[in-house]
Amino acid sequence: MLIGLALAAVSMAPAQSVHMSLPPSVTAGSAFSIPTAGSGKAVLYIVGQGQAIRRDVQMGEATMFPAGALYNAGEYLAILVNGASTESAGFYVSPAPQPETLGFLAKPSRLPVGIRGGISGAVYVFDTYHNLITTPLPVSLELANASGTMQSHTITTRNGVAWTTMDSAAKEGPAKFVARIAGVSSTRVIDQVPGDPCGLTITARPNNGKVTVQTAPVHDCSGNPIPDGTIVTFTETYNDQQSTVDVPIKQGIARVDMPAYPGAKISVASGVVAGNEIRWGGGK
């Protein structure tokens, strides 16, 4: 209680002073001055969490702070030390109004096609000095697919941030996700990739005493080709024995030579997706 009263008394003291007058508001990075009254030399401190500055001042003159001298937004104390006496007052430095950089969080960088709301973007708007601009501003978010289709949303920032979600396209390929505000933009690339294989089918033919098994061109359910390197598992079952082989898709199909056992069952799968089964020697 006593401490509180003491603080209150000390805090009130500078308010009664008339030796310096502060501007009502300061914009980050802009020039400003603090006029002083009286005579003699003194020291002026500007102290906050964003910056700490010291100036020797001639009382009775204005102390100039050029553009770029005080650039971090926040609360500051101006303290005038004149010999044994000090006086202080608080003022606020606001972010510059002009956006300069964007903090653009776009996720994911890769996702399957046809996912509703699967792509999200959050944009933080900063000024030249990396202060968050908290006044509402319109941000444009655009997702452009390689095919030319585009989704576009304009969102007004709240407390310096705007966000949206977008759908991934039905066709695979990279998409450009762009956040734009007042001539400033930031781009991310979203890789839209095929989904799980769909309608996986195999055929077999004899090959020098073995059987060559190969898939039809492998696609997802939207018709996008499954990328090369995707693993297709072939399983051949015969006489209580089994042969399996994990084969990567190359040039759109997976192919393997397996032992030729009459009556053997040959099946195919990729991940958790199963394909057709054929019986060797007995037709399909």
Binding site: L7, A8, V10, S11, P14, Y45, V47, E75, L77, I79, V81, T86, S88, G90, Y92, L132, T134, N159, G160
Partner: peptide
């Protein structure tokens, strides 16, 4: 704010942080 051990200013501040 202190200059070594000398108090230069003391202030109670009410503000809003983002």
């Amino acid at each position: 704010v202190l200059d070594h051990d000398k108090i230069l200013a003391t202030k109670r501040i009410e503000t809003r942080y983002v």
